[in-house]
Design a protein around this nucleic acid. Structure first.
Length: 292
DNA sequence: AGTTGTCAAGCTAGT
DNA sequence: ACTAGCTTGACAACT
């Protein structure tokens, strides 16, 4: 089992999510930023590997504005060597990476241009992984989208849009149950229609479910992953004490985590921690697993 | 050097 | 009609 964290390392002093304002866009600014982001990414992966961390969510901002109309630069060609180098490092060290586009990525929007824009972002993210030469176990994870007063119609719209996606995007795309709109059971319905794997999120399930137990939901999500997808991915987070529902805790609660693991001990999966202190919690969890 | 409003973008629920 | 909050963090303009 790999244990990972999202996007930004808190201790090494660089970030591979540097960006800039659209108003200050220029080819020079873009290339300088991509160059720095890729250097930091390799640095981050290296630090992860040295600590035994082999699961990492890449930031969406590695190439800022890549899916925006303003970006016409051939960055794919101009940074091909750097991408290949990072991909080689990932494969050589048995690291798994994933991507998680932001809240503006909505495949099932009734508005065609929002779908088109979301699709462009997915193409960019798939391209990142393709340029690294990574196989289909390296995923892109999204939420189902909006409801628009008609969940059944919106689920149907998602499935229709899914078939419009390129094979390069589809082989990597997975959906996650969210904290308010689409439950694991809703995701399961979509899986039944198009066969897309489901990422189980424990906190979202706790906040948003019909009547399914954690184990029922986990098992259902688990069964949607095929060999070509790699072992299932799971998002794990703890509720921040005293904060509003759904906000992520500052650091992992090892008792909660142990209770979670006790329920799913028979499954092999990779777990992504969505916890504010990032790799610090990963190290805590990895350490606790030795004695579990 | 530190602070804070804003950032390319969508949607929902609550005021 | 408007806004906080979302997987979030970082930029840039101001003290």
């Amino acid at each position: 089992m790999r244990v990972g964290y999202a996007s930004v390392n808190r201790s090494i002093g660089c970030t591979s999510a540097r960006t800039f304002r659209l108003a200050s866009y220029s080819r020079e600014r873009l290339y300088e930023t991509i160059g720095n982001n890729l250097l930091c990414l390799l640095n981050t992966l290296h630090h992860n590997v040295q600590q035994g961390i082999r699961f990492f969510r890449l930031p969406s901002e590695i190439v800022p504005f890549a899916s925006h109309d303003i970006c016409q630069e051939p960055w794919q060609k101009d940074f091909a060597r750097q991408f290949r180098k990072i991909g080689n490092y990932i494969r050589d060290h048995d690291v798994r990476v994933a991507l998680h586009p932001g809240q503006y990525n909505v495949l099932n929007s009734p508005w065609e241009h929002i779908f088109e824009q979301s699709y462009k972002e997915l193409c960019y993210q798939a391209e990142l992984l393709d340029l690294m030469g990574l196989d289909s176990t390296h995923k892109i994870q999204i939420h189902v989208g909006g409801i628009y007063d008609d969940k059944a119609a919106s689920i149907l719209r998602f499935t229709r849009r899914y078939y419009l996606l390129s094979p390069e995007v589809r082989r990597r795309l997975v959906i996650e149950n969210d904290d308010r709109l689409y439950t694991l059971r809703d995701c399961w319905e979509i899986y039944g229609a198009v066969g897309i794997p489901i990422v189980f999120d424990n906190l979202h399930h706790a906040l948003n479910n019909v009547s399914d137990s954690l184990l029922e939901a986990f098992d259902a999500a688990y069964s949607t992953w095929k060999g070509i997808d790699g072992v299932p991915m799971v998002d794990y987070s703890s509720q921040a004490a005293g904060k509003r529902h759904g906000s992520h805790a500052e650091t992992v609660d090892l008792d909660d985590f142990a209770a979670f693991m006790a329920q799913v001990r028979d499954y092999d999966f990779d777990v992504m921690l969505e916890i504010k202190d990032k790799e610090a919690s990963v190290l805590k969890v990895m350490n606790s697993l030795k004695t579990l």
